[in-house]
Design a protein around this nucleic acid. Structure first.
Lengths: 282, 282
DNA sequence: CGCCTTATTGACCCTTATCAATTGGTGTGG
DNA sequence: CCACACCAATTGATAAGGGTCAATAAGGCG
């Protein structure tokens, strides 16, 4: 039983935390949760292995929580794929993120005591439920733990910031290119192939996430394929030129070049710039 | 001394926390900080009035911290105006926010132990420095305090999310309109007039923040003025039709209308829709 | 007082949204 | 088991929103 609940972290990182069976549900220990979060296991945590967290399964299309629902728990994704969405005043969905294994969900509900977004399963999912009350009392007991939540939120904030930067200043090609590379890196971090993978979301959802229409996403993918940066066939993607995809030139829309930094890094930048022009010419 | 350091919250909200003079610098108590953050004063805080936080002054153009600088403190803006910016790979500035009194700065540095953005003074500023070590130990002593940091970060995250939504789906007019209204509401919350105020930032900076060019910002403001939604003259703004500015129609770019919600709220929505068309016609 | 930054406005056109038609895939019911 | 319906994706035609370039005016600030 102990052996099962304490698999070596290096192994658990690349496959779902097994947890243990009890009363027909899966449960995870604090140690399991830490390894899932890639947090250096808390020294004292093993003494608290009696604290267990419940797993819940969701099928495609189901929602973990919805906008306005009272906030009471954080969720950690153990396996499967999700999207999180905001709803504007007209009820239109705007995709905010595509959480994957190890990601924390529901953080935006802490402030107003109700969730500000919705999390929708894009596949069968297994999530660990962390009641917020339990979490914060644990945080008091293990300062490293609360620091790690600060870390998670801070990272999330930084991600959202660079997302805003991207939406504000990059061309469609650059957005799609970076999106693919980001996905690739996350798959790779999970132990899957970073070169070949299947998209779990529709063009519509990608477009909503990137601030583009589904047609533009489709066209851009087709263009990338034609040029040879990738191979697409429906939702299957093979990346062939990640460096170029990652650095595709921003057509300088917010030309907010600080006058100090004008002619910086000519060589490296212009390589990807030329590549972008090829793309447009094709 | 007590009287000075514990001004009634209702008063301190609308004017800089005075703090107390000591060794040529201003200092604030924990109670002062709480009132600045609009956090319900911590019950036990008065017993900890020996904990004081240093104020620091910055002049226009100076930076509170820069990208890559080791993270060691959070900052709370006591008076003045700032911008925070990210730098892309080419060194171009992208404006992320325009912090005002009571806002917390530096949160994005927690995760990687170094600041991910820069904070630049747009006017003379007075900020309170909260060494993060001090903060987290205080958090352990006063759970309400740490909860309030969670709250701040969570709110910040939600703000950033709706910002991303706005960048991804709203027209230039809608962005500028909402920007003005948001500014207005923040000025009002600080006790200033929400109807008439001066912009503290350039068109360039507004554009960078909204994902537009300075020309588009300028043109949009001129158009608003022509129609009568506002009166502009350089950086002075008078809002004349806030409801319309706030609800200016989103030209449906990411037409991700969920099929359930199609013909919702006709009357209210179409009023602002018509208004938007007037704008474009003018 | 004069320089330099900021703002305004016009002309042009490129990128990307919009509208529309077609195909392929999947699931369901006759 | 096939036909039909439905959804995702691709691709083309068209146009407009907003970016780029440029010239001028209006402010600050040393």
């Amino acid at each position: 039983m102990f052996a099962e609940s304490r698999i070596a972290p290096s192994v658990t990182i690349n496959q779902p935390v097994a947890g243990r069976q009890r009363a027909g549900h899966l449960w995870s220990s604090l140690t399991d949760v830490c390894s899932l979060l890639q947090v250096t296991p808390i020294a004292a945590a093993s003494t608290a292995d009696d604290v267990v967290f419940q797993h819940v399964q969701f099928k495609t299309g189901q929602r973990l929580f919805t906008v306005g629902q009272p906030f009471d728990a954080l969720y950690i994704l153990n396996s499967g794929f999700l999207k999180t969405v905001m709803l504007d005043e007209a009820g239109n969905e705007q995709v905010l993120s595509f959480p994957m294994k190890g990601d924390v969900l529901g953080v935006d509900g802490i402030h107003a005591k109700q969730y500000m977004s919705e999390a929708v399963a894009l596949s069968s999912c297994d999530v660990i439920v962390i009641p917020f009350k339990v979490f914060s009392s644990l945080g008091r007991k293990y300062p490293e733990l609360e620091l790690s939540l600060y870390g998670v939120m801070s990272r999330e904030l930084a991600r959202e910031q660079s997302m805003a930067g991207m939406l504000g200043s990059l061309s469609a090609e650059a957005r799609v290119g970076r999106f693919l590379v980001a996905l690739s890196e996350r798959y790779a971090a999970m132990g899957y192939s970073g070169k070949e993978f299947n998209l779990r979301m529709t063009r519509q959802e990608i477009g909503s996430y990137l601030g583009l229409t589904l047609e533009t996403v489709s066209r851009t993918l087709s263009a990338f394929d034609r040029i040879g940066y990738i191979a697409v066939e429906g939702r299957s993607i093979i990346l062939k030129d990640m460096p170029t995809l990652k650095t595709l030139r921003r057509l300088p829309p917010s030309q907010s070049r600080s006058k100090e930094v004008v002619a910086v890094k000519k060589s490296a930048a212009d390589v990807s710039f030329d590549a972008a022009e090829d793309l447009l010419a094709a």
